[in-house]
Design a protein around this nucleic acid. Structure first.
Lengths: 172, 172
DNA sequence: AATAGTCTACCTATCACTAGGTAGTCATTC
DNA sequence: GAATGACTACCTAGTGATAGGTAGACTATT
């Protein structure tokens, strides 16, 4: 793991705790043992770092999901798989969804970051629509937005009330 | 409307756009036509202002809701009323729910503010549980957390994708 | 005389970002 | 195989802007 990857990792933790403005170049540089000026070598501006963060997060999330077809082939319900990955992100890391938090504060973000946040949700809705269609839902597009809304909202409220059992109650 | 109320109003707009760190004493002072030092007369610290903001927002929200009994007496469904108020907050102001955004970034907030955010959701869940119970739901507590999760999540995603139709699709 | 509300003037800390330099690595060239 | 030049990954030192917060003076109302 090189310094660039380390920087993204520590920045991700901070953003998932308090949003885009919850990390500074100085802080993350200090965390990985370099100087803040050197962070600019890897990421010219803070917006570049933020965009890279959301892009990487989206890719990792999609990779964790896998393909709807593979899940159906295993005889599992893709919506259950999707829910389990959300639950894992909350329980394991005790943190919000990166793009959920960024999405909520969308208006104040640099455009580069907004684009990547939008990509996250576009890809999620695409995946969920396919999943609901494969399950025989009559309105897969609506079911998709309902599923992701419920999960992001339950995550947010579990963080606000500092009690993960609300997530379980809302999604079980 | 005095300066204190004006300050809360302009601060609320900024927080609902980009979170707790999206406003500064200098900015809001300038917006209402006083100096930043004078803001400290009304609110000793930023945490005090943030807490007052969330408290006021909660009170206004509950007042707008009214009582479950009154709504039932009018022959309306309280969950529809609740949903309509959420939709109004999104469509009219084109902004997130204040406590939703603050809740998502809960970990990075001063404790005073966290307490007020928690109060918002506690009161909301209480109201929704009573509403679902009045509707004859078999598990009002679960229905309550599901309702608020869906609405907060749909709001967040509508902001992230910059398209209110997602909220309508998820909640209609 | 007292209080409320605002002011000027300032503090320290932190922010993103830049200029310019250095040590080591690498392939190319003579 | 020694020298050259480009490249990587960092550094020191600093910029101007902005952050939250404080001390003490001023002014208008009561």
């Amino acid at each position: 793991m090189n310094k660039k990857e380390e920087l993204l990792k520590v920045a991700e933790d901070k953003v998932r705790q308090g949003g885009y403005s919850n990390f500074s170049f100085r802080e993350i540089a200090n965390d990985v043992g370099i100087k803040s000026a050197s962070v600019h070598y890897h990421f010219p501006t803070k917006a570049d770092l933020g965009a890279a963060l959301a892009h990487q997060y989206t890719d990792a999330f999609l990779a964790a999901l896998g393909s709807v077809d593979d899940i159906k082939a295993r005889g599992e319900n893709p919506i259950d798989v999707y829910t389990a990955i959300f639950r894992g992100a909350l329980i394991t890391d005790d943190k919000m969804c990166l793009c959920g938090l960024l999405g909520a504060q969308n208006e104040s973000l640099p455009e580069k970051v907004q684009v990547e946040v939008k990509r996250f949700f576009d890809k999620n809705l695409e995946w969920l629509s396919a999943a609901h269609a494969a399950n025989g839902e009559e309105n897969p597009a609506r079911a998709a937005i309902t599923t992701v809304s419920l999960l992001e909202g339950a995550m947010m409220i579990s963080k606000a009330l500092n009690d993960h059992s609300y997530f379980t109650l809302a999604t079980q």
